[in-house]
Design a protein around this nucleic acid. Structure first.
Length: 141
DNA sequence: CGTATTTGACCAGCGC
DNA sequence: GCGCTGGTCAAATACG
């Protein structure tokens, strides 16, 4: 597979949301993975976050199903999948080897159910909402 | 006891 | 064809 940086060239767009704590640079990329013979097109959406926490709770329940170390990256990449039945949304989280605070998160697929989690901090929910909104906008533009 | 995580095995694609 | 690399499976394990 290609490197993530090659697939999704990081244009350091400084359109950072004027958020409180964390700023997310949204690098929208939808790539049609037409592997051989034009299979189903899937949307892949990548953004990167500057935060200490690599596990961003976006309201969904993610079950980890793998972890691999990739070349040119000293940190392993972890693979998650939505634990809701019938919802095969995938997500992978990867750290940058350069600055440890940089986290690249990739979503793939669309949830077919509503968010089931609540009770987290308000800020978290708000942040998640913002992320999901932009994600939605990008995916269904 | 049910559900999530860990972790090595396994597999598929690609380059040589 | 072989080996490397990345993605997934699944059995064992942890944990509430």
């Amino acid at each position: 597979m290609e490197k993530l940086q090659d697939l999704f060239p990081i244009s350091s767009s400084s359109s950072a949301s004027p958020s409180d704590v964390k700023k997310e640079d949204f690098l929208k990329t939808q790539r049609t993975l037409n592997l051989k013979g034009g299979k189903e097109k899937q949307h892949k959406y990548v953004f990167q976050t500057r935060s200490h926490i690599d596990i961003l709770d976006d309201g969904y329940r993610w079950r980890k199903y793998g972890e691999k170390s990739v070349k040119n990256n000293k940190f392993p990449r972890s693979y998650y999948r939505c634990s809701h039945r019938g919802c095969n949304v995938k997500k992978q989280i990867q750290r940058h080897s350069k600055d440890e605070e940089m986290v690249v998160t990739s979503y793939e697929g669309i949830h077919n159910h509503h968010v089931e989690k609540s009770g987290e901090s308000f800020e978290q929910i708000l942040k998640s909402f913002r992320i999901c909104t932009q994600l939605h906008n990008i995916m269904f533009q």
